[in-house]
């Protein structure tokens, strides 16, 4: 029973972490390898506001942290990616380099050790089906579900969300209808970065803000996206649950050290068995038509 509860929490955590990456990829086809760096940036900024300005209210610090992260994301597109748009390898190299620069810059600037932590929103825990779950994790589950619901409504019922769906499926056809692909790409990076920041604010109170987390987050996000099928929303959810439960099971029966191995192993197996991922739906459709 405990395993199921922890598995669900872990799965939702993973999907929160990968949402931003998927969103950016599905709309602008940019594999945003700076995702992990943006995640840490948001946490670090929030910590800075709290630490450097005494009496800064926590919610405001969170908003500022996420807001600045999203602006950073938009600027990454506006100033760098716009020049290499459409060349996947260059995009990967550029975004990865930016990510490295941010993360190692932060490390060099003093983000070392265990002193960087964000406070939990509420302390305390509650007993669910025999498993002790603290409030922060409950908030994560709630916020994760809410984010999914909001994103679904956003892409189905708002004008800009529909433009996103158009651009994601056929950029040039969308352009012919008056949709500006550079604009949607900037907005998608801003939203994707904000999502990374949002996940960071929710998850970082559970641990320390360390540079390594940035790399781990990137690997988890890639694992989830590769297994679910790049750019597929349903894939993110399904893959998060597969990896999430696999991790909890290995932790319970083998050892906690193997968590990362599970994610990497899952990537390899997916690439061997079904390279387009579980929901490589787009290609399937193309073949039919």
């Amino acid at each position: 029973m405990e395993l199921i509860v922890y598995g669900i929490i872990n799965s939702i955590t993973l999907s929160l972490v990968s949402l931003g990456f998927t969103l950016v990829y599905s709309i602008s086809r940019v594999p945003n390898f700076a995702h992990g760096a943006l995640y840490i940036t948001s946490g670090y900024l929030t910590w800075t506001f709290l630490d450097k300005f005494a009496g800064f209210p926590y919610p405001l610090a969170i908003l500022a942290g996420i807001g600045i992260t999203s602006i950073v994301g938009a600027m990454i597109y506006q100033f760098i990616l716009v020049r290499i748009r459409g060349m996947e390898i260059s995009e990967i190299i550029a975004t990865y380099a930016i990510g490295l620069a941010i993360l190692e810059g932060l490390r060099w600037g003093g983000l070392r050790g265990m002193t960087f932590t964000l406070p939990a929103f509420f302390t305390g825990s509650v007993n669910i089906l025999g498993a002790s779950v603290d409030y922060q994790r409950l908030i994560i589950v709630g916020a994760g579900l809410l984010t999914f619901a909001l994103l679904y409504l956003f892409t189905r019922y708002t004008k800009i969300g529909l433009a996103f769906r158009g651009i994601a499926q056929d950029e040039r056809a969308a352009m012919m209808l008056g949709i500006n692909s550079d604009m949607t790409a900037v907005v998608s990076l801003a939203i994707g970065s904000a999502l990374a920041g949002f996940a960071a604010i929710l998850l970082l109170p559970l641990g320390n803000i360390v540079v390594e987390t940035g790399y781990n987050v990137l690997i988890f996000a890639i694992a989830v996206c590769v297994i679910g099928g790049l750019g597929s929303w349903g894939g993110v959810i399904v893959a998060s649950f597969i990896i999430g439960f696999a991790q909890i099971l290995t932790e319970a029966f083998i050892s906690a050290h193997y968590q990362m191995v599970v994610a990497l192993l899952a990537i390899i197996i997916t690439l061997l068995v079904k390279p387009s991922g579980i929901f490589g739906k787009q290609k399937e459709l193309e073949e039919r038509v």
């Binding site: 189905r156 004008k159 529909l162 433009a163 769906r165 158009g166 499926q169 056929d170 040039r172 056809a173 969308a174 209808l177 008056g178 949709i179 739906k281 787009q282 459709l285 193309e286 038509v289």
Partner: peptide, 19 residues
Amino acid sequence: RRIFPESSVLENLKIGSYL
């Protein structure tokens, strides 16, 4: 034609009304 293959017919039309 290049219609959006994953969107429903209605959604295709809605995307068309972006402007």
